[in-house]
């Protein structure tokens, strides 16, 4: 273990796991409770368009991903609010278009493109100092947003009509939340890759809702579980020479299935 920590890439990776877990637990809980899993998946995949474009232009792919995921957040957030029907179709189409844009730009970019794969499947071991600072920034933003508007977010997630009748800025809060999802997505992309983001965003919170009765408790448990999944997955992948992102997700998935079984056989758990 001490030997592991002597590698700077390992220290960075473990640090990234901590930072990612904070946002993941908090935003993931809101995503699960407000039933925004699909829109989160859409934002995540659209971000790939930004990665491809950034590669083509020769700028930092993170910038492209941030730009695309924020634009996707606003577009999908708007579609979700305005259109009465076929929201899922529209979001699904944007999801695919984003991916397609990324792939086409990658085709047009000359040279070695293996790096593009790391955004699809994640590479927590390649996290740089710059990445860590970016993750810290996203964490501060997410934390201050949720702490400042906790009671309003809870009200909007629970009963939107009532929140509206109380004249809360429901649409603004919703769009802000989707933007936070967009930022969380960019951050998680480094760790598990955008294809598997939905799982890390939702599984910890989903396990929480099985056993806990308050949103705040679920957030805390989700943070702890994300930390266990990322760290555990990282160590396993290191010792068995596996892809880190997939290992993390598999641990999360197996934990979720086990939690479902335990919940089924437990009489005291909330229904």
């Amino acid at each position: 273990m001490a030997e592991l920590l002597s590698y700077s890439f390992m220290r960075n990776a473990l640090m990234a796991g901590v930072l990612v877990s904070l946002t993941c637990g908090i935003i993931g809980t809101l995503v699960v409770l407000k039933r925004m899993v699909f829109i989160s998946g859409g934002v995540a995949h659209t971000a790939y368009g930004g990665v491809g474009l950034a590669f083509y232009l020769g700028v930092n792919p993170i910038l492209g991903a941030v730009a695309f995921s924020l634009i996707a957040s606003f577009l999908m957030g708007y579609v979700q609010r305005q259109t009465r029907q076929r929201q899922d179709t529209l979001i699904g189409v944007m999801w695919a278009i984003g991916m397609a844009i990324g792939i086409i730009f990658a085709d047009m970019t000359p040279g070695y493109k293996a790096d593009l794969m790391s955004y699809l499947f994640g590479s927590i071991l390649a996290v740089t100092h710059t990445d860590l600072w970016m993750m810290l920034g996203v964490n501060l933003l997410v934390l201050s947003f949720v702490i400042l508007f906790y009671k309003e977010l809870q009200a909007v997630a629970f009963d939107e009509s009532f929140a509206r009748v109380r004249n809360l800025p429901v649409d603004l809060l919703y769009i802000a939340l989707v933007a936070m999802i967009g930022l969380a997505v960019v951050m998680l992309m480094r760790v598990v890759g955008l294809i598997m983001i939905i799982a890390l965003l939702t599984v910890p919170a989903a396990i929480g809702t099985l056993f806990l009765k308050h949103m705040k408790q679920i957030m805390w448990l989700a943070i702890a579980l994300s930390l266990i999944f990322t760290t555990g997955g990282l160590l396993l992948s290191y010792f068995f020479n596996l892809t880190s992102g997939a290992t993390i997700i598999l641990i999360a998935g197996i934990s979720y299935l086990s939690a479902l079984l335990i919940h089924k056989s437990c009489r005291q758990c909330p229904a």
Binding site: L33, K151, E152, Q154, A155, A157, F158, D159, F162, A163, R166, L168, T209, L212, K213, H214, M215, Q217, I218, P270
Partner: peptide, 14 residues
């Protein structure tokens, strides 16, 4: 939705 009775009623003060 995981929320306590008291937290629901407090929403009336928002």
């Amino acid at each position: 939705f995981p929320i306590s009775v008291r937290d629901v009623v407090r929403m009336g003060r928002l």
